[in-house]
Amino acid sequence: LETFPLDVLVNTAAEDLPRGVDPSRKENYLSDEDFKAVFGMTRSAFANLPLWKQQNLKKEKGLF
């Protein structure tokens, strides 16, 4: 999966995202380093959170 810089994904409308980016899964296009910096946890820890908590975190970080 291709990764993009944080500033390309945060608070970006679906139509302005790079081609192929799923707007409902912007976090998947962050590098592992950016993911950890944004969410303060690994991808696996994030995946283990309840869906509502994942969505709330994504909203807080501008990735929803």
Results as ranks from 00 to 15, higher is better:
residue 43 R to H: 08
residue 28 N to A: 13
residue 5 P to A: 07
residue 4 F to L: 08
residue 59 K to P: 00
residue 51 L to H: 12
residue 30 L to A: 00
residue 38 V to F: 05
residue 6 L to F: 11
residue 42 T to V: 11
residue 49 L to K: 04
residue 37 A to D: 12
residue 33 E to G: 10
residue 5 P to D: 06
residue 9 L to N: 02
residue 62 G to K: 06
residue 59 K to D: 07
residue 15 E to T: 06
residue 63 L to F: 06
residue 37 A to E: 14
residue 2 E to Y: 11
residue 50 P to W: 01
residue 53 K to T: 14
residue 35 F to T: 00
residue 21 V to C: 04
residue 50 P to R: 03
residue 54 Q to M: 05
residue 49 L to R: 01
residue 16 D to E: 12
residue 13 A to N: 12
residue 46 F to H: 00
residue 58 K to H: 01
residue 51 L to N: 10
residue 44 S to Q: 14
residue 53 K to L: 15
residue 12 T to C: 10
residue 22 D to K: 11
residue 8 V to I: 13
residue 42 T to M: 11
residue 21 V to G: 03
residue 20 G to H: 08
residue 53 K to F: 14
residue 37 A to N: 12
residue 8 V to C: 08
residue 8 V to H: 07
residue 3 T to E: 06
residue 4 F to A: 02
residue 49 L to F: 08
residue 24 S to M: 14
residue 54 Q to D: 00
residue 50 P to Y: 02
residue 2 E to R: 10
residue 64 F to Q: 14
residue 59 K to W: 10
residue 21 V to E: 04
residue 51 L to E: 06
residue 63 L to H: 02
residue 13 A to W: 06
residue 45 A to T: 12
residue 48 N to I: 12
residue 57 L to H: 06
residue 46 F to W: 09
residue 7 D to E: 15
residue 6 L to W: 07
residue 2 E to W: 12
residue 49 L to N: 01
residue 52 W to R: 08
residue 50 P to D: 08
residue 43 R to G: 03
residue 11 N to C: 11
residue 25 R to I: 06
residue 12 T to H: 07
residue 41 M to D: 00
residue 49 L to I: 06
residue 52 W to N: 11
residue 54 Q to P: 00
residue 55 Q to H: 11
residue 17 L to V: 07
residue 43 R to D: 01
residue 40 G to Y: 08
residue 9 L to M: 04
residue 30 L to R: 01
residue 33 E to K: 11
residue 22 D to A: 02
residue 1 L to D: 10
residue 10 V to T: 08
residue 34 D to L: 05
residue 41 M to C: 06
residue 44 S to H: 11
residue 28 N to Q: 14
residue 53 K to D: 14
residue 56 N to E: 15
residue 15 E to F: 05
residue 51 L to P: 13
residue 5 P to I: 04
residue 33 E to N: 11
residue 25 R to T: 07
residue 50 P to N: 04
residue 18 P to N: 03
residue 50 P to E: 08
residue 41 M to F: 05
residue 31 S to N: 09
residue 51 L to Q: 11
residue 56 N to K: 13
residue 64 F to D: 15
residue 41 M to T: 06
residue 8 V to W: 11
residue 3 T to P: 05
residue 52 W to F: 11
residue 9 L to A: 02
residue 41 M to I: 09
residue 2 E to I: 14
residue 52 W to E: 13
residue 36 K to N: 14
residue 34 D to R: 01
residue 26 K to A: 05
residue 34 D to P: 00
residue 12 T to E: 06
residue 22 D to Y: 02
residue 43 R to C: 02
residue 46 F to S: 00
residue 53 K to S: 13
residue 46 F to G: 00
residue 47 A to Q: 12
residue 37 A to T: 13
residue 57 L to V: 07
residue 4 F to Q: 04
residue 14 A to W: 12
residue 7 D to R: 08
residue 30 L to D: 00
residue 61 K to C: 10
residue 38 V to Y: 05
residue 8 V to G: 02
residue 57 L to P: 00
residue 29 Y to R: 01
residue 1 L to A: 12
residue 20 G to A: 07
residue 3 T to V: 13
residue 52 W to Q: 10
residue 16 D to Q: 05
residue 60 E to M: 11
residue 38 V to H: 06
residue 17 L to A: 04
residue 60 E to Q: 12
residue 64 F to S: 15
residue 9 L to I: 04
residue 14 A to L: 12
residue 31 S to F: 03
residue 46 F to E: 00
residue 59 K to Q: 11
residue 43 R to N: 05
residue 31 S to G: 06
residue 5 P to H: 05
residue 49 L to W: 05
residue 19 R to N: 15
residue 63 L to A: 02
residue 34 D to N: 05
residue 23 P to K: 06
residue 30 L to V: 04
residue 19 R to W: 15
residue 37 A to H: 11
residue 10 V to N: 04
residue 8 V to L: 14
residue 5 P to W: 03
residue 24 S to F: 14
residue 57 L to C: 05
residue 12 T to M: 09
residue 22 D to G: 01
residue 21 V to H: 03
residue 14 A to K: 10
residue 23 P to C: 06
residue 4 F to G: 03
residue 52 W to K: 10
residue 45 A to M: 12
residue 12 T to V: 11
residue 26 K to T: 08
residue 23 P to E: 06
residue 38 V to Q: 03
residue 32 D to P: 10
residue 60 E to A: 12
residue 29 Y to I: 02
residue 42 T to I: 11
residue 3 T to C: 08
residue 28 N to S: 08
residue 14 A to N: 15
residue 14 A to S: 11
residue 19 R to L: 15
residue 27 E to T: 01
residue 20 G to L: 04
residue 32 D to Y: 07
residue 46 F to A: 00
residue 29 Y to W: 10
residue 64 F to C: 14
residue 12 T to F: 08
residue 15 E to I: 09
residue 37 A to S: 12
residue 23 P to Q: 07
residue 41 M to E: 01
residue 23 P to S: 07
residue 56 N to W: 10
residue 13 A to L: 11
residue 16 D to R: 04
residue 15 E to D: 14
residue 9 L to W: 01
residue 14 A to C: 14
residue 4 F to Y: 15
residue 50 P to A: 09
residue 28 N to Y: 11
residue 28 N to L: 14
residue 54 Q to H: 00
residue 61 K to A: 15
residue 18 P to L: 03
residue 2 E to Q: 15
residue 45 A to F: 10
residue 47 A to W: 09
residue 14 A to Y: 08
residue 37 A to I: 13
residue 23 P to R: 02
residue 64 F to T: 13
residue 61 K to F: 10
residue 41 M to V: 06
residue 11 N to M: 08
residue 36 K to E: 14
residue 53 K to A: 13
residue 32 D to H: 09
residue 43 R to S: 06
residue 2 E to F: 14
residue 35 F to R: 00
residue 5 P to R: 04
residue 20 G to S: 06
residue 26 K to P: 05
residue 42 T to F: 07
residue 22 D to I: 04
residue 32 D to N: 12
residue 26 K to G: 01
residue 11 N to F: 07
residue 51 L to C: 10
residue 3 T to A: 07
residue 33 E to Y: 12
residue 10 V to D: 02
residue 46 F to V: 00
residue 60 E to W: 07
residue 7 D to S: 15
